[in-house]
């Protein structure tokens, strides 16, 4: 086994870790918060708060 073979295995391992992190966190968030909260984002917030569009 050469160094680059170990690096290949490390790349597979790290990829799996990053993927697992996202999937586990995704599951945790979706089971902790209601869909109403998670999908409550609406566009135009800053506009409505700071810009009155009067020139």
């Amino acid at each position: 086994m050469e160094t680059w073979n170990y690096i290949e295995y490390a790349a597979w391992g790290l990829s799996a870790l990053f993927g697992l992190y996202m999937v586990i966190d995704w599951f945790k968030i979706d089971t902790t918060y209601s869909e109403d909260v998670l999908t409550s984002s609406r566009e135009g917030e800053l506009e409505a708060m700071t810009e009155q569009h009067k020139v």
Partner: peptide
């Protein structure tokens, strides 16, 4: 990120 229109969780500015 929590402004009008009912937004409870929005993208971070």
């Amino acid at each position: 990120g929590m402004g009008p229109h009912g937004t409870k969780v929005g993208l971070l500015r």
